[in-house]
Amino acid sequence: MKYRSAFDIIGPVMIGPSSSHTAGAARIGRVARTLFEKQPTKAVISLYGSFAKTYKGHGTDLALVAGILDFDTFDDRIPDALKIAEETGIEVQFLTENAVTEHPNTVKINLYDGEGKELELIGISIGGGTIEITEINSFKLKLSGANPAILVLHEDRFGMISAVTSILSRNEINIGHMEVSRKDRGDVAVMVIEMDHQIDDGSFAELSFLPGVTQVIRLVD
């Protein structure tokens, strides 16, 4: 893993005690909340590896729930996240798993709204508050969460990638990283696009109304 600056090793401004177990966890939770696009009514959080062993002592449980509440890493409400979640009507369940994962700081978050909407996200905290999202709703991907990004859910058919990237090019939006994943040929696919700056509302609307696109989700940096 290469770090871009000393701050990637030291970690972000945060409520402690650990950048990987607290700040990273909060960021993963916040990505899940952003992708869910609303406050959930239930969160099932499955912890693996060192997360499963130390989550209470390192405040990982508080940080994950704080992220789901849309709190940033430095929010002084993090120590009260579980209480705030209960007060706002979010049922939280923690599960510790024995399965061996590729990275010790791995978490799976399942969010529900009580009306049929669901999200499953798997993320890892790789140190210094840096994270990586490796799976969303069974789609394998690689999303750092460090840059402005969009997720484009679309039909898996000819010309979709070109149509999306043409809109970004026409609006002078530079792509830093892009991945495409699909479940089955001709089924639903997802593009993960990280950009140099946040996408503007006009470009976002163009993508949303593109034939074959079912949903566009903006991930706030």
Rank of each mutant, 00 (worst) to 15 (best):
E194D: 08
L69F: 08
L141K: 11
I109H: 06
L141G: 12
R30D: 10
L69I: 04
F204S: 13
T54C: 02
V31F: 12
N137T: 01
S5F: 01
P148L: 01
R185L: 09
L111E: 12
D221C: 11
V107P: 09
R218M: 09
V190C: 15
Q215T: 14
N171G: 00
E194L: 07
I28S: 11
R157E: 05
F36E: 05
F36N: 02
P211F: 01
S208Q: 13
G127H: 04
I10G: 00
M191C: 04
P148A: 00
H177V: 01
I131P: 07
I45Y: 08
A81D: 11
G129K: 09
V190H: 02
I122S: 08
K56N: 08
M178N: 02
A205N: 11
L62K: 15
N174P: 01
G16F: 01
L219Y: 13
I68D: 12
R157V: 03
G67H: 07
V44W: 01
M14F: 00
D72V: 04
D76A: 10
A25S: 13
P17Y: 00
M191L: 14
E194S: 10
A85R: 06
F158M: 08
I124H: 11
M14Q: 14
N147R: 10
I126D: 02
F139V: 00
D200G: 05
D196C: 00
T88M: 14
A81Q: 13
E172V: 09
D113I: 00
R218P: 08
T214R: 03
L153F: 15
S18R: 10
D113L: 01
E91G: 08
L151F: 15
E179A: 13
A32H: 09
D156K: 13
T54W: 01
V152R: 02
I161R: 03
P40F: 05
P12Q: 06
L119C: 13
S5T: 14
V92N: 07
